[in-house]
Nucleic acid binder design. Structure first.
Lengths: 343, 343
DNA sequence: CTTTTTTACGCAACCGATTTAGTTAGAATA
DNA sequence: TATTCTAACTAAATCGGTTGCGTAAAAAAG
């Protein structure tokens, strides 16, 4: 019932017979305020239950200490780890994190970019939606010197910070690993190849590895999913393993797809890794749980989130107008577990 | 270089020789503004690239159209689905979502609650940290009529909205299911029981079911983890399955723990479900992937998120001061899959 | 005991949108 | 023609901190 009005610096000023400017400065330990006054102000603030109004500060200073995060979804392990990394790094510097999910919809992404701009975020971290080709909706951030970092799924022709892994190299390594384990017919599961995305990079790595080692690239060994779901992947795996000339190795562009292949193999009595060696991508939690344990490519999600946030923070702190926005490559490694071991 | 100042309603007003009040109203289709003027204003806004400043509006109106979410972590499937549900519902009403992770630290939770209040969120959705007993840090929201919803892990003695499942009933159902499948010695894996949390509710449900069916409750069959990690759970499972008088059924308070039990059983040549029937809790993605498929209790994460957000939104729209904050119970179901089938 | 410097604080504009309480011009009514 | 209404605006206060600039008082220097 008590319409509890917030305590403001005006209330503090009145109580202490000081100017609001003094209060404001005292609360932030401004050097021109005597330590005695600072102590007095802080004590009173505590007593009266003063809570700063971030909005007001943000309005005046035109900065909100908020980082916007725009990603397809939060429910994929990679992306939730990414968020976690971002949130931890941001919070360490007193920044908040606003999350938006584009659900791989271009229209949503555009609308959300506008919304984030409207919220005057201090920076934005984005992983593009599956169908996003055009990126003009991010131009407003660039124009207004709001730092923007693209992570993982990044645009090609946009001069901004980027935090990525070398998808081609990683896929190449994965494929070579299978070859070194003695595989001769290596299948590949990929997704959404009609959009120029990171899955294509991985596919290229796969193809280049085969070529390098003089193995034929066969269309029937490459499955291209419309959407990355377990069931879709399972169907694709079934098809691959039912081929007359069955593959003896399989590189999947994601762990879920790799797991589906393992399950599909089990159903058919195909032994992994004896008859089929499998390697995935991402090092999702499931990869250590599935039996046999899944070999995979590490994908440092939390680290990528952390670095993205740090780049934003640094860029806010030192808004050097250098035209060159660096690209940060993070390492990936082949994580050999059971599913690809040579017997 | 061009210090691109934002276009404001002042710029529009000047350009169109109108008052800022007219601009403001025109942009929101206020009925007292002629449709001709509205059209004119909107066109100019578009042309000049006007983007509303949410901060300013928020400051004036003392509302931010932002919902704060305070949870232990975003990387657990249940919680990331929860977030997803919240975000979708919030966004549908034009609300933003700020995420903070307490990492089960009480101090972090307190600090973040303050921070969210400082950001003047319009409402807050919270799932308590493992160690949180005291909840005075949420009192400020109540005092200032900021709607607060606790979800899943909720406090007992705090008159706020709560969105939960009936953990006791769900656990009871799960245990009864095992009994009905013929299990006589049913083990249980729980966690963090020193804190009065929802795992305890489930444990109670387990015990009550055993009692009801005249099965003895044996201490050695109950494993209590310090932290819910796969490895911890694996160790506990190993111990349970190495008992002289081995259990023939196992109810785990989480799917990860249930999966660990399945893996532990496999290592020992104990067949699931023939020799050991297992049921988990949550219906995490992994439950459909593990072999055998894991029977589990559904836990409607996204739905709970959605409802939490809707309660907040409704509460903002109709700030009726009724002292009674309803508790929303969501349904859970026993999802019978392979791991608990009678042979 | 002046003059200069330093310390510590006050004044007031400012950020950009919202909103209350008018005001004006033209239409409707008498 | 005088009066009342109404539609369509405008002026100005407001939200709560922040900050450039100004100034009084105390300290240091001369």
């Amino acid at each position: 019932m008590e319409e509890n009005k917030d305590v403001t610096i005006y209330d503090l000023a009145e109580k202490l017979k000081l100017a609001t400017s003094t209060i404001s400065r005292a609360l932030k330990d401004h050097p021109t305020i005597s330590s005695k006054t600072i102590k007095k102000v802080k004590k009173m603030a505590e007593e009266m239950g003063y809570v700063p109004n971030t909005l007001a500060a943000g309005l005046r200073g035109n900065k909100t200490n908020t980082i916007g995060v725009l990603i397809p979804t939060v429910t994929q392990p990679f992306l939730s780890s990414l968020i976690s990394g971002i949130e931890i790094a941001a919070r360490k510097s007193g920044y908040n994190v606003i999350i938006m999910q584009s659900h791989d919809s271009y229209e949503e992404e555009v609308s959300m970019a506008k919304s984030l701009y409207s919220s005057r975020v201090s920076g934005i971290i984005c992983s593009l939606g599956m169908k996003t080709v055009d990126t003009t909706h991010f131009q407003q951030f660039v124009n207004n010197n709001i730092p923007i970092v693209f992570v993982d799924r990044v645009p090609k022709d946009f001069n901004t910070f980027r935090v990525i892994i070398d998808n081609h190299a990683a896929a190449y390594k994965a494929t070579v690993h299978l070859i070194e384990q003695g595989c001769k017919r290596i299948a590949h599961i990929t997704a959404g190849s009609e959009f120029g995305n990171l899955y294509n990079e991985r596919k290229r790595g796969y193809i280049d590895a085969l070529t390098k080692y003089n193995l034929p690239v066969e269309k029937e060994l490459i499955a291209d999913l419309k959407t990355v779901t377990y069931n879709e992947a399972l169907k694709a795996s079934d098809k691959l393993l039912d081929l007359k000339n069955r593959p003896d190795g399989l590189f999947a562009s994601g762990d879920i797809m790799a797991v589906s292949a393992i399950q599909s193999a089990k159903k058919r009595g195909i032994r992994v890794p004896e008859d089929l060696k499998v390697i995935g991508f991402n090092n999702d939690p499931i990869s250590e749980i599935i039996d046999p344990n899944l070999s995979t490519i590490t994908h440092p999600a939390a680290k990528m989130g952390q670095m993205s946030a740090e780049i934003i923070l640094k860029s806010i702190k030192f808004p050097n107008k250098d035209e060159v926005k660096e690209i940060t490559f993070l390492n990936t490694e082949v994580l050999v577990r059971e599913s690809s071991k040579k017997i």
